[in-house]
Design a protein around this nucleic acid. Structure first.
Lengths: 235, 235
DNA sequence: ACGTAAATGGACGGCACCGTCCACCTGACC
DNA sequence: GGTCAGGTGGACGGTGCCGTCCATTTACGT
């Protein structure tokens, strides 16, 4: 089938193929459509947070009180929905990141940053996967991510220079820590959250350049069940 | 349909309903069946290790070079297959556990135990989920697990008494550590393995009762990508 | 060699989810 | 009020996996 490499060149609409509604700005939407869009996003956030990003689309639609067609019209692919649903949280994440960079005390900035991110990671199952996988297809992760990595390097370097981190600390220890924390994400939030805090504390005490002879206090240890869902997939 | 509550009472074989092959000891199997059984187990270990315990049964069957019916005949449910497939590793795990309990130096025993377990966790994706969820349905986890927990308590207590662990260490920190390590399980083994070792070292340095003023060396930091599969599922 | 029961593989119906299509509403504009 | 593009919901075909059923093959005892 060599000739006519798709692109159906005879269709005049091919210049603006999908120009009906999908790629329109939310502001141009008819009010009812706009309202439904918001409902879908809200439902998506809730469902993905609870069940993970593999939750059936129909579940999201039902929860939003709309049909699947409406959902697919606004967000043609799961990735599109995910990107839109987690956009706020990702932006918030970026804000915290900037704050950390601006903190005069790099060690403190780093700790606060990680504490915030980890809290979200462990509380929102969907955000966990989205953040961790970086979603190559959904986000312009190229620039974004490179920039984040550069910022992280800078932050770590400052903390090292300030003598707040042990000399053999490596920037790669940050993703390491994030992955470790996201391992707790399967637990129910009420145990995962204190667990994450305790883990973070343990690790930060290890990261210190000159640990005090008597280590600082730990947040309380939750009763870990680990007979829980762990991750295999949806509820 | 009140009368005759199934059980087709007229069938004389109903006394030993399924006594054909499923519940027979492997030894009584016909040699070809026995060989196939082994093939299936081998394939299951490989596939589950690589793809996780949700891998399609047909994949296992194909890899074993048998039909699905053969697989289901030997292992009527996925859990049964999992239990059989991971039985060896679980037993080996128990052995290492006993060795740890027998170690005159409790801290060293604990460390070795965890290092071994973590290595397996991070290398074998299927074992990770099986071990972590404990598989209530598949294993007689009741006694087994209670016993393990008791042993763990004992081990930790001995290490505490020996002054090898900080006073605020809690037995729950062990599952915490395991979960954290299993968070690395999504990474490809060649980075997950060094990552796990480094994480373990960091944590153990934090667990110490009296950390030296200059902390011990760390195993090398792997290049962490975290744009990897992470976990969502499938390949 | 032959009969029988165990063993096998692939086909099949069932199910859950995906993503599209279409016939029917509805809000904006004349 | 009428028109119509934009919006909607549910039905529908497609796909992948599950677990069973059955016609055929294979090993073992005689």
């Amino acid at each position: 089938m060599p000739a006519e490499i798709s692109h159906n060149t005879d269709d005049p609409a091919s210049a603006a193929p999908l120009g009906t509604a999908i790629d329109r700005l939310p502001a141009d939407l008819r009010p009812d459509a706009r309202r439904n869009r918001e409902r879908v996003l809200k439902a998506a956030r809730e469902v993905f947070a609870a069940q993970g990003i593999d939750a059936p689309m129909s579940t999201v639609a039902r929860r939003a009180g709309v049909g699947v067609a409406t959902l697919y019209r606004r967000f043609p692919t799961r990735s599109a929905l995910l990107a839109a649903a987690f956009d706020d949280q990702l932006a918030e994440c970026a804000t915290v990141f900037e704050e950390a960079l601006a903190d005069p005390n790099p060690g403190h900035g780093l700790y606060t940053l990680l504490e915030t991110v980890c809290t979200t990671l462990v509380t929102d199952r969907g955000f966990d996967t989205v953040f961790m996988t970086g979603f190559p297809e959904a986000l312009d992760c190229g620039r974004e991510r490179a920039c984040a990595e550069a910022g992280l390097n800078h932050l770590v370097q400052r903390a090292l220079d300030a003598g707040q981190l042990r000399k053999d600390f490596d920037t790669a220890d940050i993703p390491l820590l994030l992955l470790a924390v996201s391992g707790l994400a399967g637990q129910p939030p009420e145990t995962a959250l204190p667990a994450a805090r305790r883990l973070l504390t343990y690790l930060f005490q290890s990261f210190q350049a000159h640990p005090p002879s008597r280590p600082g206090p730990l947040p309380p240890a939750p009763r870990m069940d680990l007979t829980g869902p762990h991750r295999t997939d949806g509820v």
